Amino acid sequence: MKAAHIIDELKTFYKEGVEYRSLERHLTEEDVERWRNACGCSRSQLFDEIAKGLALGYNASELLFDFCDMVVNDLASPVTNTSGPKPQIFWEVYSAFDAGEYYHGDNRDEDPVEVYTRPMIARVVELLATGPVNQPAALDQ
């Protein structure tokens, strides 16, 4: 199972224009385990691969901020409840979307998504392209 397939499935949960509280479905621990079993990877690898897909899709303007933000917020609980190595890429992506959720220093003249999230995600994507995390992904099998 590829990260793109998981993101496509997530698009059926987190629909454009539907507020978080009004969603009919959110991702569950059962979803996480199903995806992990399908890809044959660790939970940490799964979370990093989903985060990579979100970062790449958002950076290419293929995914909206609200969609990505809802996904990382709902993944935070399963990630936190995972033992073993922590998914570093996931937390970088989570932090980027979290930074776009609020005004910084009460500066209402700037859009936090454009000032914080977009450049943070661009940096993650740059590191993915050039850094040691740019390895064959378990989900691309």
Rank of each mutant, 00 (worst) to 15 (best):
38 A>G: 05
52 K>M: 11
71 V>F: 05
94 Y>H: 13
80 T>G: 10
92 E>F: 13
45 Q>M: 03
53 G>L: 05
12 T>E: 10
57 G>K: 02
3 A>Q: 06
97 F>G: 05
85 P>M: 10
3 A>M: 08
5 H>L: 11
8 D>H: 14
28 T>K: 11
134 N>L: 10
41 C>Y: 00
69 D>H: 15
112 P>H: 05
101 E>C: 15
28 T>P: 01
107 N>L: 08
28 T>I: 03
24 E>V: 09
25 R>E: 13
94 Y>F: 15
85 P>Q: 12
55 A>I: 00
25 R>S: 11
134 N>A: 12
63 L>F: 15
68 C>N: 06
129 A>P: 06
42 S>R: 01
67 F>V: 03
127 L>R: 12
55 A>H: 00
111 D>V: 07
9 E>M: 08
120 M>R: 14
40 G>N: 01
21 R>V: 14
47 F>S: 00
42 S>W: 01
41 C>D: 00
30 E>C: 01
10 L>N: 03
94 Y>P: 01
42 S>F: 01
81 N>T: 07
32 V>Y: 00
5 H>M: 10
25 R>P: 01
21 R>I: 14
31 D>H: 15
70 M>N: 14
114 E>C: 09
125 V>M: 10
91 W>Y: 10
20 Y>T: 11
108 R>V: 13
54 L>C: 07
115 V>S: 11
68 C>Q: 00
117 T>N: 04
125 V>S: 03
58 Y>M: 05
76 A>V: 04
55 A>R: 00
37 N>G: 09
52 K>H: 07
7 I>E: 03
63 L>K: 04
86 K>Y: 12
46 L>A: 03
107 N>D: 15
9 E>G: 06
136 P>D: 02
38 A>C: 03
23 L>I: 06
138 A>S: 09
139 L>M: 10
66 D>G: 05
26 H>K: 14
133 V>C: 10
32 V>N: 01
26 H>T: 11
127 L>D: 11
136 P>M: 07
58 Y>V: 08
60 A>E: 12
1 M>K: 09
54 L>W: 09
141 Q>E: 12
106 D>G: 09
18 V>P: 07
117 T>C: 12
141 Q>R: 13
132 P>W: 10
66 D>P: 07
96 A>R: 02
8 D>G: 09
85 P>Y: 08
15 K>T: 07
48 D>K: 00
137 A>R: 15
134 N>C: 11
108 R>F: 15
